[in-house]
Design a protein around this nucleic acid. Sequence first.
DNA 1: CATGAATGAGACTTCATTCAT
DNA 2: TATGAATGAAGTCTCATTCAT
Lengths: 190, 190, 190, 190
Amino acid sequence: MNLTRGKDQRTKILDAAMNIFGKNGYYETKIVDIAEQAGVSKGTIYIYFSSKEELYIEAHEREFRQYLAHLHHEVGKFTTFKEKLLCIAEKQLVVFYKDRQTPNKYLQAYNNDPKMIKCLHDFLDHYHKYVVTLMRSEGISNPEEHAKAFIGMLESYKRDIFFNPNFDYAMLLQTVLFVVELFLNGCQKD
Amino acid sequence: MNLTRGKDQRTKILDAAMNIFGKNGYYETKIVDIAEQAGVSKGTIYIYFSSKEELYIEAHEREFRQYLAHLHHEVGKFTTFKEKLLCIAEKQLVVFYKDRQTPNKYLQAYNNDPKMIKCLHDFLDHYHKYVVTLMRSEGISNPEEHAKAFIGMLESYKRDIFFNPNFDYAMLLQTVLFVVELFLNGCQKD
Amino acid sequence: MNLTRGKDQRTKILDAAMNIFGKNGYYETKIVDIAEQAGVSKGTIYIYFSSKEELYIEAHEREFRQYLAHLHHEVGKFTTFKEKLLCIAEKQLVVFYKDRQTPNKYLQAYNNDPKMIKCLHDFLDHYHKYVVTLMRSEGISNPEEHAKAFIGMLESYKRDIFFNPNFDYAMLLQTVLFVVELFLNGCQKD
Amino acid sequence: MNLTRGKDQRTKILDAAMNIFGKNGYYETKIVDIAEQAGVSKGTIYIYFSSKEELYIEAHEREFRQYLAHLHHEVGKFTTFKEKLLCIAEKQLVVFYKDRQTPNKYLQAYNNDPKMIKCLHDFLDHYHKYVVTLMRSEGISNPEEHAKAFIGMLESYKRDIFFNPNFDYAMLLQTVLFVVELFLNGCQKD
DNA sequence: CATGAATGAGACTTCATTCAT
DNA sequence: TATGAATGAAGTCTCATTCAT
């Protein structure tokens, strides 16, 4: 029971942390805001996490872990290379799309703190490696470079998703198609 | 004489600000650090800039302005589409490469402050429009989307440049070639 | 228990604030001085009051409220007009007399801040209205003007009380008698 | 010529100082505001006055001196006691009336600084002594106390003058008459 | 004499973290 | 475990005063 309760508390705090950090960024987030959102007191947060920084890292690690697991699961449903690329692209853009009300989440600093930097890098490494593996298994040359390029293109649409008020899910799907097409065949002249 | 001195001071402060903000990020930068680096006192900074935020914005606006002017000038030296793409790609990666000792500069938050966000957006808008114009003049379909994708691919290499200790200028040029090739012709199988 | 503690702290801070503001005036008072006198830390003051200005106003409002309640209570003990005037006069001069070691308290600026000005005005309005009511119930003509004059005369003795080292309680009572006599019958020739 | 210029500068600065100090109070006045109003630079002020405090004192001493001289001159035009009282009362209220757009001038702190306190006390001493002399020469008993009371009554109308927007010169004259009448004959019942 | 750029001490206020209950 | 009052380090910004020109 205690364990369960403890787990609930941790989860509630991590949820609230992800929410508030995403909305306001690391520096503009106050521990007390997270506590309020989580429905606990400031002191309670320090029972489960040793510092604001650690809370930030744990919240993000959980998020990243969940995303990779989800991605792996979804991509597994497809068989052709193009389908898999479309799936990866769609999943990445959907992440942005879901959070389009709180764009700062993806524009925030991953500040100087080595642990916070490591946290982001580890995720990106996993993500890239996942895409690299896919590329390699398809016989793509230079799989590392191709993976970077593919992911970079997708990243580049987040501004649109966040700041173009007309961007809807239909446009998202068009973008997915466009990026995969460009990746596979290069730019198209009229 | 006074004017000159005043201009010197402003420039010294902007240089120091860009340097320290780049190294430490907005929140971890103390005004007194910038003052020290610029060789002036705290108070002097407030003669030329009304707040830390304004200093941040002005320093970045100057940087962005200079980059766009430089890019325009350099790209103007070339005539073919591919050459121009190579030039844009090289310039963008060289920016990262020059600052590879202070990678945070390009990983920093552009935080919640509306003015600071606007500052970055304005730059990105100008940069994108520049590339869009180039695409359009070459008869590329969907010039907006192609521009985003092209710029996104380049962005994606900054992690390599910053964190791969073996990354040198030769690799940079290879990357430039790779990206442009991918953009023009799509991915290549072995 | 918490509530009690909280109330204690608030009271301790308000007491210290009144004391130090009275001794040094608004501008020459540092929050840390009040904190020290109250036996709490700087930060604690900001738990109970949102700013130095608010603390100043709340401390004075409490003081004013208490004075008016006290005055009302004391005057109620008397029945004749002259007795009531004597009571009002004595109470006002006693306030000065009690604080004669910290004269600045009554010579301080009520500075430009609109809220701080309002705080003083509200008190003076209440005080005047109280005296006006008394005048009117006695059938005095022009009760407003008479009230102002009466209060003004009393005010004018504070310099004596504060700066004449020989001023004692006997002199205070003589002054009270003199003022009321003058108010009722006008000046006296030898 | 230099001397004359020097005198001009001093005068200009004292005028500006009185103006700005009156409007904003000692602490909310910046030397640079006075400099601007006087049409000189900050540095120039320090040629003629050694500190902000000294400037404050000198500006007020000049003002007080001028007022007493003026008062003496005006009262000298009258012969009866009542006329002289009316003259004193009118002059005092007119001072407030003229500055009714900048009421803070007469609500400002005379802060803790001993020199600034002395400056005000010296003026009040002179003023009181002047009225005392008049009282004594008329055979009024207790001339000190009567003088204080008389001056106090007048002071008490400044709130009206400053904060009652309907207060005009006619009301001022009525007040003068009322105060002198009250002083001479005591309060009046209907 | 006059200027105004530069200085730097010092104040207010915030907020992560602690700890007694 | 949970709380939230208390702490105090630290940062931004102001402004009287100085001094080189």
